[in-house]
Design a protein around this nucleic acid. Sequence first.
DNA 1: GTCCAGGGTAAGC
DNA 2: GCTTACCATGGA
Length: 279
Amino acid sequence: MHKQVIPHMDLGHIAASGQCFRMNALPSGAYQVIAGDRQVTITPEGRDTFLFDCGKDIFDSLWHPYFDIGTDYASLASLVPKEDHFLQASLAYARGLRILRQDPWETLISFILSQRKSIPAIKGCVENLCAGFGASLPEGAFAFPTPQALALADERALQACGLGYRTRYVQGTARMVAEGQVDLEALRLLSDGELQEQLCRFPGVGVKVAQCVMLFAYARFNAFPRDVWILRVEQNEYHGRFPEENYPGTAGILQQYMFYFGKSKEYILWKEQHGQAGI
DNA sequence: GTCCAGGGTAAGC
DNA sequence: GCTTACCATGGA
């Protein structure tokens, strides 16, 4: 057990934000997190205190970086002009939302699956893949499958996980990684532009999926993935395009807040009060 | 029954 | 360089 004070962390927002697909609330109010072949249960205690069911060494080496605890999220609001009411509202609504530093392989496959799927549907597919091709973990959980496991998987068995037409994307990508054609860890050395270019070599990966992997696995906070929700927000609140160049080093974090708020029911209510487009 | 989801690809211009 | 049909599946 390890108790840790972490300001500005809301596990509910993170779990529901659509950046990860294997973090779930338990009936007790705790959260189960599975990342790669690791799992941890986190119990919130009061406002900023969390109990991790692991030792301090595992917390320091694994979960501290995973939850991006070194980044200051509280100062984000000061970077945003007061006139940008939508972005200010997004930051207030999703207070405690963080950008996780996930495993590149798991994130790559998860977001290849994500195209034209709802978040609950993605979570279902990911769980099917883990149960079918992942190693067994304690307490009946399953690790995310290795590149080798998915590269060798039977095509019909993959189809049965609900992948649909994405099956050949997953197989093709898994084979490229399993054969060592691309080293996902070595890509950390590349610039943003080079990293996006290399990720787009995988089948089923375009600019949007590449930018999600850059943001959620490689901690590239300048990445600004545009999905249908963000395009909608840009149309409604920014006359077509959000000025990401005004936020070097944080645009991607703001994107996640805008995505999460723009997709919520609270945004509908907020819009009725504020009416006109923002900046 | 219809519509939509954290889009990509290949064909056409 | 740019649009446009097509792609499987589950949930609302």
